[in-house]
Design a binder for these strands. Structure first.
Length: 301
DNA sequence: TCTGGTCAAGGTGGT
DNA sequence: ACCACCTTGACCAGA
C-alpha cells in the first residue's frame, strides 16, 4: 500500500500546473512554462519521498496545449532529459505515478472529432509516462464517458473505440467508476471485454452503486489488476458533510479513513487521497495507517 | 499589486 | 433550441 494525492502540493510554494491562454500561445511561452512545471514537479517528488508519500498523480497541465493543434513544438525532444530524470527518481523511490485526463476526454463519444481529440490527449499522457521511463504500472485513468441516450450501445462503443486506441495508450489505460452513469459493475464488465484494469473510487461508489459493500466492491476491482498493471489503485475521498452528495470533503475524515483501512483488508491497494488540502490530508492518512504492514516504506538515497 | 471574470475541450438535464 | 452546471486552479485585463 502506498498513500498519495493528486497533482498539486500546498507546501512546496510552486505550482506544476502553470498554463496560459490559448490566445497567448507561443513556443517560447510553452518552453518557459514547461520548464517551471517540471522544476516544480521535481520539488514535489522530493517532498513526497521525504514524507513517505509514494503515490502521486501528475497534473495534465505539465505541458499546456500538448494535444491541441496549436502546439507543433517538439516538447518531447526538448524536455526528454528532464522527464527521464523525474522518472529515474520516481523509480528509485518506488513511487506509483499516474495521470488523469479531464472530463473532456471521452473515448466513447459517437462524434469522430471528439474521439480523435481524446486519442491525441491520451497519447500525450502516455508520452509523458513513456518519457519518464515508467513501466505499465504507471496508469492513465479515465471515466467510461457519456450515455448518449443508450447505455448499452455506449458501452459497446467504448469497447470498439478501445480496440482502435494506439498500443501505447491501451498499455496504460485504466477506467474509474463515476458517480452518475457508469458504476463499478459497468467498469468490471468493460474490463472483461478490454482487459483494462478498474480503479475503485470510494466517493463515486457511495453515490452510484449496485448495493455492493465497500469490501465487496474493492474485491471486484482488485481482480482486474495483474502484475503488469501493478497493485490495484483506489481513489479515496470522503463526502463533504452537509453538502451535495458526491462533493469532496475539504479535509480528511480520519474516522472514515480508518474504517476504509479496515474494510480494505486483505487487499493491498495504492491509495490516492482526493481531498482539497492535498498532501496535508495524505500525511494525516499516512499517520493514521501507522504500522499497517501493507505500507510501502520509502527507500533512502 | 490586487481581484473578479474568464478560460481548450463535452455532456447532461432543466427550461 | 438554449443555457447553467459540472469542477477547478490559474490567467490576465483592468482597477
Amino acid at each position: 500500500m502506498r498513500i498519495g494525492y493528486p497533482c498539486l502540493n500546498t507546501s512546496v510554494g510552486c505550482s506544476p500546473a502553470r498554463t496560459f491562454r490559448l490566445a497567448s500561445y507561443s513556443d517560447v511561452r510553452l518552453v518557459e512554462t514547461v520548464e517551471r512545471n517540471l522544476a516544480c514537479t521535481d520539488a514535489i517528488l522530493h517532498y513526497n519521498v521525504a514524507h513517505g508519500l509514494l503515490a502521486f498523480r501528475l497534473t495534465s497541465d505539465l505541458v499546456p496545449f500538448a494535444s491541441h493543434p496549436v502546439c507543433a513544438y517538439a516538447w518531447q525532444e526538448r524536455f526528454r532529459p528532464a522527464f527521464q530524470a523525474l522518472g529515474a527518481f520516481a523509480r528509485q523511490h518506488r513511487m506509483r505515478v499516474s495521470m488523469h485526463p479531464g472530463q473532456y476526454t471521452l473515448i466513447n463519444s459517437p462524434r469522430e472529432e471528439v474521439f480523435a481529440a481524446s486519442v491525441r490527449d491520451l497519447v500525450y499522457h502516455a508520452e509523458v509516462l513513456d518519457l519518464m521511463g515508467l513501466d505499465a504500472t504507471a496508469r492513465v485513468q479515465i471515466h467510461v464517458g457519456g450515455v448518449y441516450g443508450d447505455r448499452r450501445r455506449s458501452l459497446d462503443r467504448f469497447v470498439a473505440r478501445y480496440r482502435d486506441l494506439p498500443a501505447a495508450v491501451r498499455r496504460r489505460l485504466a477506467i474509474e467508476n463515476d458517480d452518475r452513469q457508469y458504476g463499478l459493475a459497468d467498469c468490471v464488465r468493460l474490463h472483461e471485454d478490454t482487459g483494462t484494469p478498474v480503479i475503485f473510487d470510494t466517493l463515486h461508489h457511495e453515490a452510484n452503486n449496485a448495493g455492493e459493500s465497500v469490501g465487496d466492491a474493492l474485491a471486484l476491482a482488485v481482480r482486474t489488476w495483474d502484475t503488469v498493471a501493478g497493485p490495484p489503485m483506489v481513489d479515496y475521498a470522503s463526502q463533504a458533510v452537509g453538502e451535495r452528495v458526491g462533493k469532496h470533503a475539504a479535509h480528511i475524515d480520519l474516522a472514515d479513513f480508518r474504517r476504509f483501512l479496515v474494510a480494505s483488508r486483505p487487499h493491498d491497494p495504492d491509495l490516492m487521497l482526493e481531498i482539497k488540502d492535498k498532501e496535508q490530508s495524505a500525511l494525516l492518512a499516512l499517520q493514521a495507517a501507522g504500522e499497517d504492514p501493507r505500507l510501502v516504506r520509502a527507500v533512502s538515497d
